[in-house]
Design a protein around this nucleic acid. Structure first.
Length: 840
RNA sequence: GCGGACGUGGCGAAAUCGGUAGACGCAGCGGACUUAAAAUCCGCUUCCCGUAUAGGGAGUGCGGGUUCGAGUCCCGCCGUCCGCACCA
């Protein structure tokens, strides 16, 4: 009778047993080597997505494998549970954000459980619960005491309809993403975290992260954006409202003798002042503000300027340079004004050509004063036409100019960062309340730690737009902790990125009375392997690196980098289908017919679209629950690991998951063959044993390298070899060992087989099989024989055969003899145990 | 525009050090079993010439180069994708 694996029964059974035995609980006091494996925790949107399944399966395989190799593994799961969708649901469906979120968590947890992940659920946390965000408030106060938190007036994107602040990413073409209303700039008092204090450290720390993708490190480097240069003051030839100088920044102070004009942003204070009495300038400035900052616009936009009629005085030559207001100068970078050197900066050159300004060369690769064409020269060279720095190389000239400016007191060497301090105020309900009180007498007063957590009120309404905390009848009214007079609670809540900036430490240590225990957390930290999507390359990963440094700065933890290893996995994609009228069709609606697809119900032809990321709008979504129902957890897990390298996109296909399901059953039949055949002849199968031990070794290193697709291929090869092998003691051993090799990937099947084979205990508790090094070396090798680099034949010989013998055998190989037709080779190249190449 | 990654059969992909290109899976084709289907098993499957399980030729985006030998190294193109975006 054919054995068919029954995942419906097996999955639930083993999940229950693992639960009962607390198999995956991490022991804080273990003497084993530690391994912290973490996947980015999900936002509880309601359903898990196939992308989550891929992400968590990868982490699970690594976690289970590390357990088998003798590690004490921490592999936790939680919920990034604050955020806007819950408030949107509250507005649309009239449910409380907390109820909505908690029921989503319950649903998603049930879904995750069905996949049999080896998670320590005892450490589960949700950021929306007071036991988490209360500790976050305590940490926020610690950072405040350390001087890392401050308030400042800041221009924000204000949505006048939703009556709330929007993040830059939520403003699309100048309009609120939800309301569609034109966004206003408003000055509001906002809470900030001093991330810029750690800018240099966050940058140099990247060099220590040798287990991070270069791509992510580069993105962070660009985001932090360090520029070193000279900040200096030009004297103005006309005093503007009491101002006699304009401050500029340049990364190329060496080119200062090539400056032919200066330019400032339309919003520069001097420009604003001048515009008061110059309507043409005011109009021009308005034009500058109107043009968008969208990629396409910037690229095509012409350099435009307005000559103010004022000049700046060159600090060395005393020459008068015209001062322009220019649309390419940004107020929020550097000082909002620049010295322009057209010969050595492309933007300055474009501008100079348009307004007929001089373009003197001051750096030359060959010392010649060649005229500048349409391209600015930005390469290395020697300074010319530059007074006291003539003849110097660029770097020396930079230093010389900075030294002179500092000596004469009109400028100083400076570093400018693109990174801004992190604005964490949100005018939302569903977030961590910022633990401060505003008192008319005492000012901004921190909530005393013994009064934490500041808990969100439950009785809120979402009938009208705006922040429900702000209009709650009682919540914000409190007495000042200092003077006892009536005062007002801060009604802003924290950006949810704060919540995800330390959850990994709370997983490692979760006491009731403090955010974490230093010693316990340090035993686990840093996270050994962190796995998640590339979309978090900058924000989340940078914030978490900052927050960990901030805690380190406060003496809370002896760790600076939270994630030693980072892996960014690819997306799960799917074909898209469209009907003739252009509407998207879901996979269930279409049917394969011959080479193409038709609508199942009507037979109407369907056009096949691109393979894209699964999304509701394109209707190419596959629900994890449905496929688990159909094929069981193991087939789904196996598919997630097969074929595509984990960092690349994985195309979901029905034939692919069916292939996985077929293999699950092939394994199941193979495992059944151990008892059934009874044909263990006691004989040894050396070839199979060699294959087995090579596979044990390969699969182990593939899993460590997260090359799951390769591990899967090796397991297929071994299964093929076992099926072809004749019954023997070796074959029985190989089958039993195969169960161990697949255990991290298809754990339910492995447990079922282990029990079925009469083995004691759980396979989850069995160690990874040992490799016999003697079996890793072949005693016979197949050698390629080439003539002039072209393969002509192969010969199989004993390993380690001396050069002369190989040459003789190669010359004697029939195909070779025919090809060279008796000629004597001029040269013979022999690579021992690999190949012989005859040069005629 | 700047920066980065990638380009291998019909498809997803292997090839860890410059040494037999295409392992493994999917799809496809042929066969066995079956009344039939499903399931399963066996075989073939880069392209071209060839009756051939003989043999040969071409072949890793394109054009060059280095080398006894290049998917891999170097130079120059082309294409796709991703990130950033007037950053002084």
């Amino acid at each position: 009778m054919q054995r068919r694996f029954n995942p419906l029964e097996a999955d639930a059974k083993w999940q229950r047993i693992w639960d009962e035995k607390q198999s995956f609980r991490a022991d804080d006091s273990s003497a084993k080597p530690r391994s912290y494996v973490l996947e980015m925790f999900p936002y509880p949107s309601g359903r898990i997505h196939i992308g989550h399944v891929r992400n968590y399966t990868m982490g699970d395989v690594l976690a289970r494998f590390r357990r088998m190799t003798g590690h004490e593994v921490l592999h936790p799961m939680g919920w990034d549970a604050f955020g806007m969708p819950a408030e949107n649901a509250a507005m649309e469906k009239k449910v409380h954000p907390g109820d909505w979120t908690r029921s989503n968590i319950a649903n998603m947890k049930a879904q995750l459980k069905r996949l049999g992940f080896a998670l320590d659920w005892s450490r589960e946390l949700a950021t929306c619960e007071p036991d988490y965000y209360g500790q976050e408030q305590a940490l926020f106060l610690d950072l405040y005491e350390a001087g890392l938190v401050y308030r400042k007036e800041s221009a924000v994107n204000w949505d006048p309809v939703d009556m709330t602040v929007l993040a830059n990413e939520q403003v699309i073409d100048g309009k609120g993403w939800r309301s569609g209303a034109p966004v206003e700039k408003r000055k509001l008092s906002q809470w900030f975290l001093k991330i810029t204090q750690f800018a240099d450290d966050l940058l140099s720390g990247l060099d220590t992260l040798d287990q991070w993708p270069d791509k992510v490190k580069l993105m962070q480097e660009n985001w932090i954006g360090k520029s070193v240069g000279l900040q200096f003051r030009f004297k103005l030839d006309t005093v503007v409202a009491g101002t006699e100088t304009i401050e500029v920044f340049s990364t190329r102070p060496d080119t200062i003798f090539g400056a032919s004009f200066a330019a400032m942003a339309a919003d520069h204070p001097i420009a604003l002042e001048l515009a008061k009495n110059d309507t043409k300038l005011a109009t021009f400035a308005d034009e500058c503000r109107k043009t968008g900052t969208a990629a396409a616009e910037v690229e095509t936009q012409e350099k435009l300027g307005y000559d103010t009629g004022i000049s700046v005085i060159h600090p060395f030559t005393g020459a008068k340079l015209p001062l322009f207001v220019a649309n390419f100068v940004l107020m929020d970078y550097g000082t909002g004004a620049v010295m322009a050197v057209p010969a050595h900066d492309q933007r300055d050159l474009d501008f100079a050509r348009k307004y007929m300004l001089a373009t003197p060369r001051v750096v030359s690769p060959d010392g010649e004063d060649a005229p500048i064409g349409d391209e600015a020269y930005v390469g290395p060279g020697t300074l010319i036409n530059s007074d006291f720095i003539d003849g110097m190389e660029v770097e020396a000239a930079k230093a010389a100019v900075i030294a002179r400016a500092e000596g004469e007191g009109w400028g100083q060497g400076t570093t400018v960062w693109r990174l801004r301090d992190w604005g964490v105020s949100r005018q939302r309900y569903w977030g961590t309340p910022i633990p401060f009180i505003h008192c008319e007498t005492c000012g901004v007063v921190p909530v005393p730690k013994d009064q934490l957590p500041v808990v969100l009120p439950e009785d809120v309404s979402f009938d009208i737009p705006g922040n429900p905390l702000e209009r709650h009848p009682t919540w914000k009214h409190v007495d000042c902790p200092k003077c006892g007079k009536a005062a007002r609670r801060e009604t802003d809540t924290l950006d949810t990125f704060v919540d995800s900036s330390w959850y990994f430490i709370r997983f490692a240590s979760q006491p009731d009375d403090k955010p974490f225990d230093k010693a316990v957390a340090e035993q686990w930290m840093p996270v050994g392997q962190y796995i998640g999507g590339i979309e978090h390359a900058i924000l989340h990963l940078l914030y978490a690196r900052f927050w960990t440094r901030a805690l380190n700065y406060c003496g809370k933890i002896d760790v600076k980098e939270p994630f030693a290893g980072l892996f960014t996995q690819g997306m799960v994609t799917h074909e898209t289908y469209r009907a003739r009228d252009g509407r998207w069709l879901s996979p269930e609606e279409v049917e394969k017919q011959g080479e193409g697809y038709v609508i199942a119900a009507t037979g109407e032809p369907v056009s096949l679209g691109r393979v894209e990321k699964m999304s509701k709008s394109k209707k190419n979504v596959v629900d994890p629950d449905d496929i688990i129902d159909q094929y069981g957890a193991d087939a789904v897990r196996w598919f997630m690991l097969s074929d595509s390298p984990p960092e690349r996109d994985l195309p979901w296909t029905v034939s692919g998951i069916e292939g996985s399901w077929r293999f699950i059953n092939r394994l199941w039949r193979l495992f059944g063959a151990v008892d059934e055949s009874g044909e263990d002849t006691g004989t040894e199968d050396k070839v199979l044993m060699r294959k087995l031990h090579q596979t044990i070794d390969d699969v182990a290193s593939d899993i460590e390298a997260l090359s799951f697709n390769k591990a899967v291929a090796k397991i297929y090869e071994l299964a093929n070899a076992i099926e072809k092998a004749k019954p023997s003691a070796s074959r029985t051993e190989a089958i039993r060992t195969l169960a161990l090799l697949v255990a991290p990937m298809v754990p339910h099947l492995a447990e079922e087989a282990w029990a079925d084979m009469g083995q004691a205990g759980l396979i989850a508790d069995v160690a990874w099989p040992d490799v016999d090094p003697a079996l890793l070396v072949e005693d016979e090798v197949t050698i390629a024989v080439q003539v002039m680099g072209k393969l002509r034949d192969t010969i199989t010989v004993a390993k380690g055969l001396p050069k002369e013998e190989l040459e003789a055998l190669a010359l004697a190989a029939p195909n070779v003899a025919r090809t060279i037709e008796g000629a004597t080779p001029k040269k013979i190249i022999v690579v021992p145990d690999r190949l012989v190449n005859l040069v005629i």
